[in-house]
Write a protein that binds this DNA or RNA. Structure first.
Lengths: 219, 219
DNA sequence: CTCCTTAGACTGAACGGTCAGTCAGTTGCA
DNA sequence: TGCAACTGACTGACCGTTCAGTCTAAGGAG
């Protein structure tokens, strides 16, 4: 009815709202089945306005993907800043990836990774972005290990090698939990990841069992 | 012009040709961007015939996904049958997953996994299928290990646990190689996987370096 | 052997729904 | 007055699916 509803915030806030809405919708329906009309409806705007901001559907969706992944890494960074023991840090990291939950208010966000991968596989620009994102992820792991070594919590190991391996393992495990494989429930995935870390880094895992047994939110 | 062109084979063969064409196209363009018209063109038929065989586009694509994954496992089975040493078997398995190549004449087949995952994440039926497929995959690994134990090649280990972990690691690694991550090239992925297997199962890895250095076909 | 029938394989053309993107214009603030 | 934010109505392309009908091989019946 009216232009500039004034109820909504600034242009930047609206843009963000659209990105968030798009990310949610991609997670729910998938990249290809997300319509700009849906995004528009979710933020209470006209489809035309979405185009006004993003130019094309493709740009909107691609930016939304980036937006969401970045918010994931931001969460990881925060988490890393709030703890210092290597054990607690790894624990938090593994929970972040293996246990389905909304790490940053985007529900079912794991679905986004699948779409990101599928998109990256076919579009060079997205591919470049993804590589960057993943390097960031590995460097977070690397930093945790280096800090652990420096603090004398663990012995010297090849931090980079560990990061690459551990990141791959976590990816693989979270595929299973995201897809609800009955043989690899979140508990088990968590255990496998922590066992590997403990074994490789030489940390003893004690008294970690029988916790958060009902914490695996089933989406 | 003519019905029953007679140049083509039986109905079954045509169905298969369509499935194969669909799988190829999904690998190239992605699930959502595959048109029945393209499939029809690739097999030299009319779009109507494709519908005639599969009813709907969705059924065609879903079946194509299954078709291709099964051909992957068939390749794995064959491979398992042709060697018996645990070391050679694992080596072949790792190469199958980590080194980009056409395992069964469908080029760029890794892209199919991304689409399968994305599809499984959202559609219960596909999800069930995928779980089954993955259990088959793990049981292949498990069998290799059990055979190795029985033959006295390696010490007793929890074969199931190893299978789940190793499968996850391989998934994670092949994501990186499929997406051409510069830090995780096929060589390195291969090395990481084999190191893990060797370390966990207690096999010594000797004289495996400096092989197939130029074998990583860049798609 | 020939005619007739039937069923399955197959097609061209058209239909109808869905959307991304356009456009001409409106509103309100600075 | 001018500019940025915003909209409703529209359109043009795309594409899955339908349909009415064609062609052919196979299998009797005479």
């Amino acid at each position: 009815m009216a232009a500039r509803p004034a109820t909504e915030g600034s242009a930047d806030q609206r843009r963000d709202a659209m990105l968030r809405a798009a990310a949610e919708l991609i997670a729910e329906r998938g990249f290809a089945d997300t319509r700009i009309a849906d995004v528009a409806k979710r933020v209470g705007a006209s489809p035309a306005l979405v185009i006004y901001y993003f130019g094309t559907k493709d740009r909107l969706l691609t930016e939304a993907l980036r937006f969401s992944e970045q918010s994931f890494y931001a969460a990881a960074d925060r988490l890393l800043a709030s703890t210092s023991s290597i054990e607690k840090r790894l624990d938090a990291l593994v929970q972040l990836t293996c246990i389905p939950q909304d790490y940053d208010d985007i529900p079912g966000a794991w679905g986004l990774w699948f779409d990101l991968w599928a998109q990256a596989f076919r579009h060079p620009e997205v591919k470049r972005d993804r590589v960057e994102l993943d390097q960031r992820w590995r460097s977070i792991i690397e930093r945790i290990v280096r800090d652990g070594i420096r603090a004398g919590e663990i012995a010297e190991v090849d931090a980079k090698q560990f990061a690459v391996t551990f990141a791959a393992l976590l990816d693989g495990l979270s595929i299973q939990t995201a897809l609800e494989d009955p043989e690899v429930d979140p508990q088990r995935a968590y255990g496998i990841a922590m066992d590997f870390a403990a074994g490789t880094l030489g940390i003893s895992r004690r008294a970690k069992r029988r916790r958060r047994s009902s914490a695996s939110t089933r989406r």
